[in-house]
Structure formats: structure tokens, C-alpha cells
Amino acid sequence: MTDDAITGLEGDLRTNGIDVESIDAGDPLDLTYTTSFPGERVEHGEIGRVCNTLIDRAEDGTWDPVRVEATVVRFAGDVQGTWHADAEWFEGLLSYRLSEEDFSERVLGTLTNTVDENSEESEGSA
């Protein structure tokens, strides 16, 4: 992917309400964005907007699906959570081998909220 495509992808994400902190459009695509919902858990609607932006770009031929690794921050240095989506999931959705519901379930199944990790750590250290 060229620098123009990175700028275009960042612009598309921002247009869809995603506050891009950093992006490396390699393989994997590494995305960090600041959430508009700085609670304890990552907001599923924002994940959907990221994925839909990538799906739209794949459909119009401006993005070739690769694994996406996303980090969601409340503000710089305060990670709210992480999630990822495999290239095969995008390809399956685009070729109608995977339903939108299955795609969403797979992505949400990778979601890790830092509050959950911190709870497990404090429980395990008691």
C-alpha cells in the first residue's frame, strides 16, 4: 500500500468518526484510535465503523484485506482494549462465505478490554 492509500484510509476512517492516533497499513494493518466512549469497555459500534470502512475500501478495490490489529485508547498511553480481524474473515464476508453476523462475532470474540485483564490480575494475586 502506498503513502497515498494510507492517507486515504486514515481520511476514510476519520470521515466515519474514528479518531486515528496512528496507522501502519502494512501486513498486518496496525491501527490505534482514540475512542469517543472512554468508559471501561470498548464500544462495539466503533469497531463496526472501522470494519465497515475497510470492507467498503475492499469492495471498491482500494484495500486488499490483511489482518487488522487495533488498539483502542482513551487518551495517549491509556489503553482501553484491543481487537483484531483476520484477512480471511474479510475475504469470507466479501465472497458471501461468511455472514455479517458471523464476521462480527469473530471480531468481537477477539476483543480484550483492559479492565477485564486488570480484574483477572488482581483476582489472581490475592
Rank of each mutant, 00 (worst) to 15 (best):
G11A: 14
I18M: 03
N118D: 12
W83R: 00
L93A: 00
L108R: 13
T15C: 00
D64L: 07
V72P: 02
I47R: 02
L93H: 11
D64V: 12
E69G: 02
E100S: 14
G48V: 05
D86H: 09
V73Y: 00
A85G: 06
R67G: 01
I47Y: 11
I55L: 13
D102T: 13
G45E: 11
A76W: 02
E88H: 08
G39V: 06
D116V: 10
G61A: 01
I23E: 00
G92P: 08
C51L: 14
Y96L: 10
T71H: 02
P38E: 07
E21H: 14
R74C: 03
S99A: 05
G39D: 12
D19K: 13
V20G: 01
L31E: 02
L13H: 03
E88K: 11
G48N: 13
S104M: 14
E10K: 15
G109L: 11
W89N: 06
L9T: 13
V42T: 11
D64N: 10
D102R: 14
A58C: 08
E21R: 14
R97Y: 11
T53G: 05
S36M: 08
W89T: 06
T110V: 05
T7Q: 09
D86G: 00
L94V: 08
T35H: 03
D19Q: 13
V66Y: 04
G81D: 05
D56R: 07
